[in-house]
Computed example of a mutant assay.
Amino acid sequence: MTLALPVPRGALRFASLAVLGSWLLAASAQVTLPMWPVPATLQSMAVLLLGAAGGPALGVAAVGAYLAQGIAGLPFFAGGVAGPGVLAGPTAGYLLGFLLAAWVAGFARGLVWWRQGLVLLGAHLLLFAPGVAWLAGFVGLERAVQAGFVVFIPGTLVKTAAALALLRALKR
């Protein structure tokens, strides 16, 4: 006789999609352009897609699973870095900002394309707030704004547009 708790089918599907999303985010973290003190990656684009395609709850769950796996020691963070020490480093604010960005991007679901674009851009820009705030503790506010936000503006626009295009293509 086995004692098993019934798992609602929807819960199993949700958890599976969250784990798959976390792996997509981990893969996107390995596409890096070395910069200091924060590398440029495809993570923010993946975060936007996870939120917008799956909704706020699934987007946040996928990012949460990604963070948990990376903190637990899987080489999921940019450049294959792992462990809880990442949350003490200069990129921690951006990693936590992914949760907020995924949640906001989730509200792009079902909107007309231009509204989706505005929501995705807002979500993308929003992740910089905790990122720059945290980074300022390492390099000072002026340098954090320059090295942690301004240099990323062109890439932010390109990745937001790409996320919107992919989202629209997936809808078809």
Rank of each mutant, 00 (worst) to 15 (best):
F98M: 04
F76Y: 15
A144G: 05
T156I: 11
W36S: 14
F149E: 04
A4F: 13
P154N: 14
A101K: 12
A136H: 09
M35D: 06
G80F: 04
V7P: 00
L33T: 11
L121I: 04
G140Q: 02
G148I: 05
F128A: 03
L48R: 04
L167S: 11
P84A: 15
G155W: 11
Q43L: 07
R109E: 12
A165H: 07
T91D: 12
A62H: 01
L100N: 05
R13T: 13
L74I: 13
Y94H: 07
G89S: 11
P37W: 09
P8V: 05
A4W: 07
A27H: 02
F138A: 14
L99H: 01
V38G: 05
F77K: 03
S44V: 09
V151A: 01
R109T: 10
G106S: 11
L95T: 00
L95R: 00
L74G: 07
V151G: 01
S28P: 01
P130S: 10
G54I: 07
A147I: 14
L100W: 05
G54W: 08
P84F: 13
S44L: 08
L157Y: 03
G117N: 01
V150W: 13
E142H: 07
G148V: 04
F98K: 02
A147S: 13
F152L: 13
F77E: 06
A105E: 08
G73C: 11
V19S: 14
A27D: 03
E142N: 07
F128L: 05
G106A: 13
L33G: 05
A65E: 03
F152P: 15
L25F: 09
G70C: 03
G79M: 11
G55P: 00
V104L: 15
Q30D: 02
W23H: 14
A105D: 09
L111P: 04
A108H: 06
V139A: 02
V104P: 11
V19R: 11
F77R: 04
A72Q: 06
F138T: 10
A101M: 11
F98V: 05
A18I: 09
A4Q: 12
W113R: 15
A61G: 01
A136Q: 12
H124W: 09
G140T: 02
A62W: 01
A108Q: 05
M45Q: 06
A61E: 04
L49W: 01
F138W: 14
G64S: 07
A129Y: 09
L164K: 00
V81A: 13
G148E: 02
A40T: 14
G51K: 00
V63M: 10
L17D: 08
G54S: 10
A133Q: 06
L48C: 05
V132S: 01
A72S: 13
A136G: 15
Y66R: 00
V63A: 05
A78N: 01
V139C: 02
G55N: 00
A4N: 09
A165P: 09
L24E: 04
L12T: 10
V63F: 01
A105C: 10
W113Q: 15
R9T: 13
L118C: 09
V112P: 14
G137L: 10
L42C: 06
